[in-house]
Design a protein around this nucleic acid. Structure first.
Lengths: 239, 239
DNA sequence: GCGCTGCATTGATCAGGATCAAACGGACAC
DNA sequence: GTGTCCGTTTGATCCTGATCAATGCAGCGC
């Protein structure tokens, strides 16, 4: 895959054919948006006038119940795609977890382009199938794992994705930043923030992880961490 | 949408353009398969040589952990689609819950057809987005709802889908069959079978539902049932 | 320095569901 | 009829994670 420099459509989102003519067209309909940490990007029910690719930062997708219970249903890291071609209303809340930059494409022209270019549609289908798979992995976590396995799984995933952003495999001794507050982690894992805190303390006490400050995590032995997740050690969960 | 008679590709799966030429092609690569209740259709990791549309009966998608814990991640009713164009390996176990008939399309020619027909790809994209939405609704249920809300939600969904198969809205006093054992419900809801049984007994005792035998459920007041689900009463969950 | 604010940690207690165990009841073979 | 099998119900007890509450701690404005 040819690299298109600093242009965000180099991301896997829409660029499996990076040197094709469509690239030029996409380039013409793109624009950038930035959000501060904590700022909402979309509320459930909003009209969506764009689709977008995450350039930098982290966004979350969350469902809420009226009484305030919330469940995060997705975490969007750089190169992830936001939006539903063919849909008008946002199905869940999208919030900037950290400072966030999106590369947006106006929805109408994007859809028109899609209708003319089969590989774009199949690329999006492929990405959506990936999302569906990870949503279903997450269902296993939410429905059947213990608090302890949940936290370990989350840390393993964050470590893996963090390494992947640097095009590496997660290595022993690697450090990464926890981009989420304890409360956000709780909402992602279906726990309370107290339980998250306690489980992290316990992992620390047992030497599975080390904490540098509150947010930086060092994993001295990655296989050890994986063995705490409840997953089949090779394959399975980590996607 | 034009009806193509008894041919299963009338299902929304692949037939938004029922009178198009592709229909003829699809017809040439289709074949049927039947499974008995309880029989496996695919194991996670199997090679998939077909994609398929459910004609009759119910199938389940499930993830399993090595120690036996399992989580159902999807329930496939007639008109639902099985398979991932572009993927080779089955990501989860597929099991026939009741007697099951599938209309299968050989994968290779199906994919070739897809590559040539943009509307087929976008139809599948749309369906996959729907699946993704319901997977995420289910994540809210698994992560944040009480046992009591979980059971009510499941019953509401089954009642709704059952009515939909007859092209109706769920009505007060409507009856439907529970196609699942207590254990299967438990695996779907992230509970144990004992808890499922107790919660159903409690709903019965409080008059929210009536049971005719073990498997037939009557819902005297559908709004009452909905109010027990924890969802926003209009819209939300029921999809 | 001070107090304030926003996360995070830790403790004490409670309760919702899990677990272990027994009994029930219908379908079916013999 | 009897016995067995399977799914279900019900009971007693336990334990994980929720809840309520207090404290810690870093950053920041003044």
């Amino acid at each position: 895959m040819k690299d298109c420099g600093t242009c965000p459509i180099q991301h896997r989102a829409v660029c499996s054919y990076c040197d094709a003519d469509e690239l030029v067209e996409l380039d013409q309909i793109k624009y950038y948006r930035s959000y501060d940490a904590g700022q909402p990007v979309l509320w459930a029910g909003d009209h969506m006038e764009f689709v977008a690719s995450v350039v930098e930062g982290i966004a979350s997708l969350a469902q809420a119940m009226e009484d305030g219970r919330t469940q995060m249903v997705g975490l969007l890291l750089p190169s992830d795609f936001i939006g539903r071609p063919g849909r008008d209303l946002a199905p869940y809340n999208v919030v900037a977890v950290t400072n966030l930059t999106l590369c947006c494409f106006r929805k109408k022209p994007f859809e028109e382009l899609m209708a003319r270019t089969p590989h774009l549609a199949s690329r999006l289908l492929e990405m959506t199938l990936d999302e569906l798979d990870s949503a279903r992995e997450w269902m296993l976590l939410l429905g059947r794992k213990t608090a302890h396995e949940k936290i370990s799984s989350l840390l393993a995933i964050l470590a893996t994705r963090d390494a992947a952003l640097r095009k590496q495999k997660p290595a022993d001794g690697a450090a990464f930043d926890l981009p989420l507050t304890r409360e956000a982690m709780a909402d992602y894992l279906g726990l309370t923030l107290e339980t998250v805190s306690r489980q992290i303390s316990s992992l620390k006490k047992r030497g599975v992880i080390e904490l540098k400050g509150k947010r930086r995590v060092v994993v001295p032995d990655f296989a050890r961490l994986l063995s705490e997740t409840g997953d089949d050690v090779d394959g399975g969960m980590i996607s």
